[in-house]
Write a protein that binds this DNA or RNA. Structure first.
Lengths: 156, 156, 156, 156
DNA sequence: TTTT
DNA sequence: TTTT
């Protein structure tokens, strides 16, 4: 059925990139999403929402986002159940991101981390840096398999 | 910041209507939302997502929805933390619904529960039954305070 | 940037399947989406929104949906400009659907058109009918290239 | 039925604030929303989407947003039909915004226009400037009628 | 556990 | 008619 979540918030910490046993990249981070209304005491309230990103975007996110950065996430809400070390069933909610937009650096583009040293041992960023000045991590990872709606005229 | 969730699924049980200490109506239910893709074994997977509805819609939902019914929910994702009886902090995710649509009865309208007896002691349904044949619970609760965009011409 | 549209409504007519010069399938239809609030005169108002679906889903939609059916569309809003036969520039808005859900037949599944004759000359439906009883047109077209988030364990 | 649109883009021009005959404030502007994928020639494509905002938010938007600013819009897609001066029926699509977020000034807050002179003859901004340092135009206009879900404990 |  |  339908399951769509759209969020804008700030990373509470640097994203963490890991790999599954199959070698698939997965990045996770937490987004602090301020509620649009304060409570009766005028206190701002915030939802801390866990985000998971897979594959190419996982690596782009790990490379370009860091703590405090603002991002938009477009994905689906997933409830995962696992057993913790006490044998108790724990339910966690997370948003599986299909798209992640970086929102507060540059004007329409995104600048990479300064990265004087390699970002992380597990992180293998694309060796050839993007030649596009306004490199767009939401866009590029799929540039090879462009679907027809971006490429073909409508026949009507 | 932005926080928007849209779901379509089926109620796993009848909704539960309660009241806060202030007398505000709150209804909760769980929506079974099938993932759009089965896993590698061809098994259908489902996310069970808790929904909370407030005020007038709480009463409408409690009156018109029941176990197995299909509904669309439009709201925001909230992460609530509370202490359980063991003194442990528990985080629960729930969707605070701003709109709930009933999807699988009638053609565009919604029929009420047959309700031979009162639905519940705590439930005080509107005493005057809606005269509109195709009563629409998403719409009606707010018919009194119609905002201008439903009522006025654009000045351009 | 972000562009996300979610709609539920009814088809105003049977969907039309066409092909681009490249042979890509494209289906278009109009969704009647009732506004959630009537106007001051109590008249229900409706937005008629054009939808475009590409590739495999185009054929599934053309085969399974027809006039009057209820559907959910998840996509993006596109403003297309073209010149009409009078040489005037015309702007049309349409929603490019990434997902289409069929909402008012069966319980979670969808039944095919009875289709005693071929639906249309241009329509070439999959010759082998789906063996799954509860065939799900939102899901199936992509069953071959399952992304890891439906198939692999999270490494944390 | 359900009708939800979420957009992030940049204003192509300063917003225009007008008033209906009833004196209701309405602001309109166009959002340039870049598509997430370039076309086959590598050209970035953009949808120019008209936005309409009503009442208090209309005035806040007119006061705080201007050409080039990035904003997130959460609303519904409306197709309006009117007759132009040639007597032809014209259909226009616009997004009626329920929420507008300002995205590229400050860190979580928003700064007002410098506004050495009054922004516009028709614009009557609130005479008392907000005392909150990090004034949030998405939030504040409704601070008086706080719904219970921002103010009350859940009874479970 | 948390962001500005 | 268009934004970065």
């Amino acid at each position: 059925m339908l399951n769509r979540v759209i969020l804008i918030g700030r990373l509470t910490a640097d994203p963490e990139l890991r790999y599954t046993n199959n070698g698939t990249a997965v990045t996770s981070f937490t987004l602090a999403v301020d509620r649009m209304r304060s409570n009766a005491n005028g206190e701002r309230q915030t939802d801390f929402i866990n985000i998971v990103v897979w594959q190419k975007q996982a690596e782009v996110v790990a490379q370009y986002l860091q703590k405090g950065r603002m991002a938009a996430v477009d994905g689906r809400l997933q409830i995962r159940t696992y057993e913790n070390r006490d044998g108790q069933k724990v339910r966690v909610a997370e948003v599986v991101a299909e798209g992640v937009r970086f929102l507060d650096r540059g004007e329409g583009g995104n600048s990479a981390k300064s990265a004087p040293t390699a970002p992380s041992a597990k992180n293998s960023p694309p060796s050839a840096p993007s030649k596009r000045q306004d490199f767009d991590p939401y866009d590029d990872p799929f540039a090879d398999d462009l679907p027809p709606e971006f490429d073909e005229e409508l026949p009507f």
